[in-house]
Computed example of a mutant assay.
Amino acid sequence: MTVLAEHPVASDPLRTIHDRYRQGLHTYLVKLTFGDVGLAEDLVQETFLRAWRHATGRADLDADTALPWLYTVARRLVVDHLRARRARPPETFMDDLSGVPVVHDPIGMALAEQSLRDALRDLLPEHRDVLVRLYLHGRTPAQVAGRLGIPVGTVKSRSFYARRALRARLEG
């Protein structure tokens, strides 16, 4: 529904223009906006809003001669919209960052590895041993428990506290 259709004081000639030309104007604007139906509807509303403002206080409004003027206003609105979009930087949305190339940073990697080594050295020996076996050697908690002769729950508990301490050390 357009602004004009909702306006309580829209004059009869303007209502006639709206009823007669709205659908054709909408079809024209869909083509000009390359199929963007939402934008076309917004531009139709803006076109009729301008027609209503232009017609206020005019007695010589004629529904039969309004069509070329409406199409000119609509076309100019599309041009203004395109100019406004070109003036703004393009909008980019990245939901998936896997396509972004990763910059190889050997110095950053070396510093990160050194920080991790230092943080691992600060852990309790039994916590460090569990983390190394689980994450560096790729063992399961059951395998680590069997190798160390401790219950699986103890392996999981040590892993939890070791990761928490490691995270605190690396973030701090």
Score class of each variant (00 low, 15 high):
Phe93Ala: 08
Tyr135Ser: 11
Leu29Ser: 08
Ala55Pro: 13
Val79Trp: 06
Asp60Ser: 14
Val103Thr: 05
Leu166Thr: 02
Asp64Thr: 10
Thr56Met: 11
Ala162Cys: 07
Pro68Asp: 07
Met94Lys: 00
Ala145His: 08
Ser98Lys: 03
Asp96Ile: 00
Ala168His: 03
Arg83Gly: 15
Ala142Ser: 14
Pro101Asn: 01
Leu70His: 05
Thr47Cys: 13
Thr33Asn: 08
Val100Tyr: 04
Arg128Pro: 13
Leu116Met: 05
Trp52Lys: 10
Leu29Val: 14
Ala165Gly: 02
Thr2Asp: 09
Leu170Glu: 05
Arg75Asp: 06
Asp42His: 11
Gly99Ser: 04
Val78Asp: 06
Lys156Pro: 07
Ala59Val: 12
Leu131Ile: 04
Pro101Cys: 01
Ala119Gly: 05
Leu82Val: 15
Tyr28Ala: 08
His137Val: 07
Asp62Pro: 11
His81Asp: 14
Ala5Ile: 14
Arg133Asn: 06
Met1Thr: 13
Arg22Thr: 11
Val44Ala: 09
Gln23Leu: 07
Pro89Ile: 03
Arg50Trp: 12
Arg164Ile: 02
Pro141Glu: 00
His127Ser: 07
Ala110Tyr: 00
Val37Ile: 13
Arg75Ser: 13
His7Thr: 13
Ser157Ala: 08
Arg167Trp: 06
Ala40Leu: 12
Thr33His: 09
Ala84Gly: 15
Leu43Phe: 15
Arg22His: 11
Tyr161Val: 06
Ala74Tyr: 05
Leu14Pro: 10
Leu136Trp: 09
Leu123Ile: 06
Met1His: 15
Pro141Asp: 01
Pro13Thr: 02
Asp118Glu: 03
Asp62Asn: 12
Val79Glu: 13
Pro8Ala: 11
Asp80Phe: 08
Arg75Gly: 13
Ile150Trp: 02
Arg169Phe: 03
Arg58Phe: 08
Gly108Asn: 01
Leu43Glu: 07
Asp122Met: 01
Leu134Lys: 03
Leu123Ser: 05
Leu67Gly: 11
Gly99Cys: 02
Val78Leu: 12
Pro13Lys: 02
Ala84Met: 10
Leu134His: 01
Arg163Gly: 04
Asp64His: 06
Leu4Asn: 08
Gly38Glu: 09
Arg128Glu: 05
Arg88Met: 14
Asp122Pro: 00
Pro151Glu: 04
Val30Glu: 00
Val37Asn: 11
Thr72Pro: 15
Ala63Thr: 05
Val103Lys: 03
Pro8Leu: 07
Arg163Met: 05
Asp80Glu: 10
Gln45Trp: 07
Pro125Gln: 01
Arg167Ile: 10
Leu116Val: 03
Val3Asp: 09
Pro151Met: 04
Trp69Glu: 04
Arg83Gln: 12
Gly24Glu: 04
Pro90His: 04
Asp105Arg: 10
Asp60Tyr: 09
Leu4Lys: 06
Ser98Gln: 03
Ser115Gln: 06
Gly108Glu: 00
His137Ser: 11
Arg76Glu: 15
Glu41Arg: 13
Asp36Phe: 03
Leu39Asn: 05
Val37Tyr: 12
Ser98Val: 01
Thr65Phe: 13
Ala40Asn: 12
Gly149Ile: 00
Leu97Val: 03
Leu77Gly: 14
Ala5Trp: 15
Gly138Gln: 02
Gln114Glu: 06
His26Lys: 13
Asp105Gln: 06
His26Thr: 08
Gly35Ala: 04
Thr16Val: 12
Arg139Lys: 15
